[in-house]
Design a protein around this nucleic acid. Structure first.
Lengths: 196, 196
DNA sequence: ACAGCACGACACAGTATCGTATCATAAGCA
DNA sequence: TGCTTATGATACGATACTGTGTCGTGCTGT
């Protein structure tokens, strides 16, 4: 918002290459060691781009970190099966798969930790979280318009109810997220939305 | 387990005092800055105990850290109101209060982050988690014996179902955990246990 | 072809960290 | 009281990190 953002097109090829290389390396270190595992020296070593150049493009380590983190949670395509159950099933399966294979789940705890103290990171976390939840929210909203949700029920509550058990499993109880679990989670949600 | 643990009674008064002082300082730094916020130098400065002495009692920073962390989750007294709803209500209120005021919720993310990579910390996390869940598990088990749970329902599932939304709120959506939320969470659980 | 600009290779200052070592002091224990 | 033992002050070496400064080289856009 405050950055002029000088249009990738008009950028010097060398700058493009450098920035991209550096971001890739940062992302790798990030996913391997969390926020604490990222140092400018480390990024320089891994990427082969000299530290001097890195500091030419990012004013500080924090800036680089925020830049890399912001490209973390690219959501899936939003399904549209026509029913809440169908949509949620697809999203839940996708989430289950990502939680166990993608790289961002390994990074998120360190962001949450940092957000506990640093306002900038808290904001970043809010953005990431919103991005992750967006598909679920969209699906819930549609169900609402279809009349599949009880009157008093907020869409965000549905979203929390479906996602919370997944997160709990991934980071707190650390149990595997198998097909059985996904099924029962979806069942709970759908059951809850219909009655009462 | 593997440590001889030389009986607090027989310890030199000076040792007792040092260890306690150091642990207190460590705990404070831990709750303020997470695991990353604890350095031996920092503990020394804050506690007034010299670094030399700290290294006399703990072989490494990690050892000190594990020692301090292990005293983190001292659970509440387990209620016994005679019904699942009563018990869960009490525990949920207690949890809600702790999540917003106690110090361990600020530390847990850093432990989870570390557990993502360090096996020792993963074990520590497992222990803490077990300690936190124990009261809920006990209460659920009792409900089971009373016949308040459906046959196929595992106690641990009930526990996960009640706790997950609290954790989600505290660390992911970062919404306040008010009385309304606690009520509806309890309602969900009790409803789920009775039918089907 | 040529000028400008980005680049890499240093080197540097300042800070913070983990552990270790030495030695004098003071507290506790018998 | 006197002996043992924990402690504090201090310095040290090794490492890692942030961020800046300098300078020569070579890629890029015109």
């Amino acid at each position: 918002m405050s950055e002029p953002e000088p249009e990738l097109e008009t950028m010097d090829k060398r700058v493009q290459r450098s920035k991209q290389t550096v971001l890739a390396a940062t992302y790798k270190l990030l996913s391997e060691g969390g926020i604490g595992g990222v140092s400018v020296d480390g990024v320089s070593r891994l990427s082969g781009v000299s530290k001097t150049t890195i500091y030419r493009h990012w004013p500080s380590r924090t800036a680089l970190l925020l830049d890399a983190c912001s490209k973390l949670g690219t959501g899936p395509t939003i399904p549209d099966t026509g029913s809440l159950k169908g949509d949620v099933t697809m999203l839940a399966k996708h989430l289950a798969h990502e939680l166990q294979s993608a790289r961002w789940p390994a990074v998120l705890p360190s962001i949450i930790d940092a957000a506990e103290r640093d306002p900038d990171l808290a904001q970043l976390h809010a953005g990431l979280h919103a991005g992750l939840m967006a598909p679920f929210l969209e699906v819930a909203e549609r169900a609402r318009k279809r009349g599949e949700l009880a009157p008093g029920q907020k869409a965000s509550e549905i979203v929390a109810a479906i996602v919370a058990p997944f997160f709990y499993r991934r980071w707190f109880s650390r149990e595997p997220i198998d097909e059985e679990f996904v099924k029962s989670a979806v069942r709970d949600i759908v059951g809850r939305s219909k009655y009462k």
